[in-house]
């Protein structure tokens, strides 16, 4: 997967003295890179939609404070990436703006620190646990250009099937993703085979299994062209990441690196990107709350 990314880091601190600062620097680098690649300057950008996993989206706010771009912070847990694109697409469609940047990030260490245990604690991760992707992604949405285009958006509803185990996020989010995919197909009157690829954000191995089952129980077979970013991003055997990747950065990096490249090369022409999010925090899981899942879908076509 590494060869599809613009920047790869060797050091989880990214030359900073804390993970939170490293994450801010990552998001800053992602926005700078996308500006450079799209040959746009800061003044061409009307809005920036961005969010991350840390409390009050601090890594985003600190990462982009030096850009002089009107900023709208968003939170959709790991679905933030698609949520940003979705909102941006609406705004562009209204004709009020020309260019929008959306970005997101997540960092394994800062996420573990906030949601789970200290890094040096000698505990075991169960096999259903997922590994937060340390990564940041940014996109430019523009009214002019020659594609790929965002053609349809399907914002998701919260679906909570009563899963409480924060080490099994894939199964908490899978029903939401299935709901969004089915709604999307029904609204657009499309069949799964219409798409070259249907891709979810971070369900991981467990969730991937479940969503295929859930959809087939509704008479929709997505297995043939379906994949999951959390499954794609890591090498399960070499990297020992248990059930795969998760986090805002997971869907973001795999889409903007791997799939965007494929769209550009016309290897795939129509894809449905469904980012999934688990809307919980460490307090809610300590209080025994279940994990509400959400999923937003966008279809991207050439």
């Amino acid at each position: 997967m590494a060869k599809y990314f613009d920047v790869c880091l060797e050091d989880e601190f990214f030359g900073e003295n804390s993970w939170e600062k490293a994450e801010s620097k990552m998001i800053k680098t992602a926005v700078e890179t996308v500006l450079k690649k799209s040959k746009l300057s800061v003044s061409d950008i009307n809005f920036l939609f961005s969010g991350d996993l840390l409390n009050q989206c601090i890594s985003t706010s600190f990462g982009i404070r030096d850009f002089e771009i009107p900023f709208l912070g968003i939170f959709g847990a790991c679905s933030t990436f698609v949520e940003g694109i979705l909102l941006g697409a609406f705004l562009l469609d209204s004709g009020a703006v020309d260019n929008i940047i959306t970005s997101t990030s997540s960092h394994f260490c800062s996420a573990e620190k906030q949601f789970r245990f200290p890094l040096e604690l000698g505990n075991q991760r169960p096999p259903t646990a997922q590994w937060t992707v340390t990564g940041s992604a940014a996109t430019v949405l523009s009214r002019n250009g020659n594609g790929p285009f965002v053609t349809h958006v399907t914002p998701g509803k919260i679906v909570d099937k009563g899963i409480k185990d924060a080490n099994n996020m894939g199964s908490a989010m899978a029903p939401a993703a299935a709901d969004t995919i089915l709604t999307h197909l029904k609204d657009t009157n499309r069949k799964p085979s219409y798409y070259d690829a249907i891709v979810t954000g971070d369900l991981g191995y467990v969730g991937k299994d479940i969503i295929v089952d859930l959809c087939s129980s509704e008479g929709i077979n997505i297995a043939s062209n379906y994949d999951d970013c959390g499954v794609l991003i890591f090498d399960k055997n070499a990297q020992d990441t248990h059930s795969g990747g998760s986090g805002c950065g997971c869907c973001g990096t795999v889409f903007s690196g791997y799939f965007f490249n494929k769209l550009r090369n016309k290897e795939i022409k129509k894809m449905l990107l469904v980012a999934t999010g688990a809307l919980m925090n460490s307090t809610s899981s300590q209080q025994g709350e279940t994990i509400p899942g959400i999923a937003h879908a966008i279809s991207i076509e050439l």
């Binding site: 989880e12 394994f108 260490c109 890094l119 040096e120 070499a238 990297q239 020992d240």
Partner: peptide, 11 residues
């Protein structure tokens, strides 16, 4: 805590 920094779990 004075002398050492936590490191990411390397595989």
């Amino acid at each position: 805590a004075l002398v050492s920094k936590p490191k990411m779990k390397k595989q």
